Deep mutational scan, measured.
Amino acid sequence: KRPMNAFMVWSKIERRKIMEQSPDMHNAEISKRLGKRWKMLKDSEKIPFIREAERLRLKHMADYPDYK
């Protein structure tokens, strides 16, 4: 399994928030909203998620050195 990228790290957190607020919303609609919101974020707002994704990538490389 591949490590999460910055969007996936961010969307995992945000998806929970949306599901708590709107439990009946369909997954496809949540995904569309998340995509739009991610694109609207400033680069500076994405930095913590980019850093976390990089940390996960490095950990994945250490844990699975033969992964292609």
Rank of each mutant, 00 (worst) to 15 (best):
E20Q: 01
K36L: 13
R55N: 11
S31N: 15
K68S: 11
R37A: 14
P23M: 01
Y67N: 15
I30L: 09
W38Y: 03
V9E: 13
R2I: 14
A53P: 05
I50F: 12
K42M: 10
F49R: 02
I30D: 01
R15W: 05
G35T: 15
D24P: 01
R15I: 08
H60L: 08
H26T: 15
K46N: 01
R16Y: 06
I18E: 07
D63N: 14
E54L: 04
A53S: 05
P48A: 03
M61P: 12
R57T: 12
K1D: 15
A28S: 13
R16A: 15
I30N: 03
N5T: 14
Q21C: 07
A62T: 13
L34D: 03
L56T: 08
R37K: 12
L41Q: 02
S11F: 05
M25N: 06
A62E: 10
P23F: 01
M61L: 11
M4E: 12
D66A: 09
A6I: 00
R2G: 13
M19G: 05
E14F: 03
F49G: 02
P48H: 07
G35K: 15
P48D: 03
R51E: 15
I18H: 00
M25G: 02
K32C: 06
S31G: 08
Q21R: 08
E29M: 01
R51W: 11
K46V: 03
K46R: 06
A6G: 12
E54W: 04
W10G: 01
V9R: 00
F7V: 00
I13S: 06
K32D: 13
H26Q: 13
I50A: 07
K32Y: 09
N5C: 07
V9W: 06
R15F: 04
A53D: 00
D66Y: 07
D43L: 11
K68G: 10
W38P: 00
I30R: 01
P48R: 04
Y67S: 14
A62D: 13
K12M: 12
E52I: 08
R2F: 13
R37Y: 04
A62H: 08
R15Y: 11
A53L: 02
P48T: 02
K1V: 11
A6T: 02
I18M: 07
K39C: 05
M40T: 12
E29N: 02
N5I: 04
M25A: 10
A62W: 06
D24I: 04
S11M: 06
D24S: 08
H60R: 09
I18T: 01
E45H: 05
R15N: 05
V9N: 02
V9K: 00
P3C: 05
L34K: 00
S44R: 08
K39Q: 13
K12C: 10
D63G: 08
E29C: 02
P65R: 05
R51V: 11
L34F: 03
N27E: 15
D24M: 03
D24V: 03
S31P: 01
K42C: 06
K17G: 02
E20A: 07
H60S: 12
G35C: 14
A53G: 00
D66I: 06
Q21A: 10
S44A: 12
K42R: 08
I30E: 04
R33Q: 15
E29S: 03
H60N: 13
K42D: 08
I50K: 09
L58Q: 13
P65L: 10
E54M: 01
E54S: 03
Y67L: 14
K59R: 09
Q21Y: 04
E20D: 12
L41C: 01
S44L: 04
M25L: 11
R37S: 11
A28M: 05
Y67V: 09
R55L: 08
E29Y: 00
D66K: 14
K32W: 10
S31C: 09
G35D: 15
K1H: 12
K59I: 11
S11P: 04
R16T: 09
K36N: 14
H60D: 14
H60K: 15
R57A: 13
W38R: 03
K1C: 11
V9I: 13
D43C: 05
E29D: 11
R33D: 14
M61Y: 11
K68T: 10
M61K: 09
R15E: 14
E54T: 03
D66S: 07
R55I: 08
P3V: 07
K59W: 07
M40G: 10
Y67G: 14
L58H: 13
S11A: 14
K42L: 07
M61A: 14
S22V: 05
N27W: 14
I47F: 08
K32S: 08
P65Y: 06
M40A: 14
R55G: 07
K36T: 14
M25F: 04
R33G: 04
L56Q: 08
K46Q: 00
L34W: 00
D43M: 11
R55V: 07
F7M: 04
E45T: 00
W10C: 00
A6Q: 00
S44W: 12
H60P: 10
M4W: 08
R15K: 10
P23Q: 02
S22Q: 11
I47W: 09
D43Q: 10
K1L: 10
A28R: 08
K12V: 13
S31Q: 09
R37W: 06
P3H: 11
W38N: 00
L58K: 09
S44I: 12
R55H: 09
Q21V: 09
K12Q: 12
P3E: 13
I50C: 04
L41M: 15
M4I: 14
L58C: 10
E29T: 02
R15G: 06
E52F: 04
S44F: 10
R15D: 00
D24T: 09
W10N: 04
N5D: 14
M61R: 13
